[in-house]
């Protein structure tokens, strides 16, 4: 997509993006850097993370690749310490890492349940615990401060067999509203983005044939979202004047019905 935001409205910002090795996280990290932010990249896959960092650096941006499993609370905290030393105080957090695994409840794929709860919920909480202090400090100093999460339209839709995934995303959407009650008065903006079908590797991990078909059909039949579309929108949220909080956004392919 052609970019809509001009200039470097994120100059001076220090950003952290989780799930930065692919998809929405990768595209958003790159866009943050283009718009002037210094960006710390967190994800498990070291090689891919370093590729993203190199691409950002080669275009004149500043990136720090920190291979991190965000389900590991201590590891996220360690990453936060390195970021504050190497890039400065974080004032823009994009807690984006997530996984989608679909199965019937009766199949008792408890490992899949845990994997989603661990990454989509606990991973976001680990990210929050590592950076909320830094965000509050930025807000108190009168600087812009953002906590942005990636939720999903699954948070509000009723999709058969998506029960655990949807539950984790409903958690993310609702905690956004709750965190605003505590962080808003401290000038920290809290936002969540609920995308519909995006062309990422998220569906690649789905083994359930019905769910796979649902998503493959959508990608085949309609013009779905690209990660860059979501990245531009997330960047717009962060680039707004600090007293404006675009707090909940749904972004869908125009032709998607669900």
């Amino acid at each position: 997509m052609s970019t809509l935001i001009a200039g470097t409205p994120l100059a001076g910002r220090v950003a952290v993006v989780t799930g930065a090795s692919s998809g929405i996280g990768e595209a958003t990290a790159e866009r943050f850097a283009e718009l002037g932010a210094k960006v710390a990249l967190l994800a498990r896959r070291k090689d891919r993370l370093e590729d993203v960092a190199e691409r950002i650096t080669s275009k004149g941006g500043i990136a720090l690749a920190l291979p991190t499993d965000v389900t590991d609370r201590a590891a996220v905290r360690a990453a936060a310490e390195r970021i504050s030393v190497e890039l400065g105080n974080v004032d823009l957090v994009f807690a984006n890492a997530g996984v989608q695994l679909i199965s019937e409840i009766g199949d008792l794929k408890t490992e899949d349940w845990d994997a989603q709860i661990d990454l989509n919920i606990k991973g976001v909480m680990n990210t929050i615990q590592a950076f909320v202090g830094s965000l509050e400090a930025a807000g108190t100093d009168g600087r812009p401060a953002d906590l942005i999460t990636t939720s999903s339209i699954a948070a509000t839709r009723v999709l058969e067999k998506f029960q655990v995934y949807s539950g984790t995303k409903a958690y993310i959407s609702h905690i956004t509203r709750l965190l605003r009650t505590e962080l808003g008065r401290k000038n920290v903006r809290v936002s969540t983005v609920e995308p519909g079908m995006v062309n990422t590797e998220l569906p690649d991990h789905v083994t359930d044939p019905d769910a796979s078909k649902l998503m493959a059909d959508l990608i085949h039949q309609i013009d779905v979202l690209q990660s860059a579309d979501v990245a531009e929108t997330v960047s717009f949220v962060a680039a707004l004047p600090k007293h404006v909080n675009l707090t909940e956004l749904t972004i869908l392919p125009t032709a998607q019905i669900i």
Partner: peptide, 30 residues
């Protein structure tokens, strides 16, 4: 500021629908 958000949404490529957006003053936490 509300108008800017509306204009941004209208400017996105045709296949992208920013279908719902809530815009509030940062200070209004509750």
């Amino acid at each position: 500021e509300v108008a800017d958000a509306v204009a941004f949404a209208a400017t996105l490529p045709p296949h992208v629908n920013l279908s719902e957006l809530t815009v509030v003053p940062t200070k209004h936490g509750r």
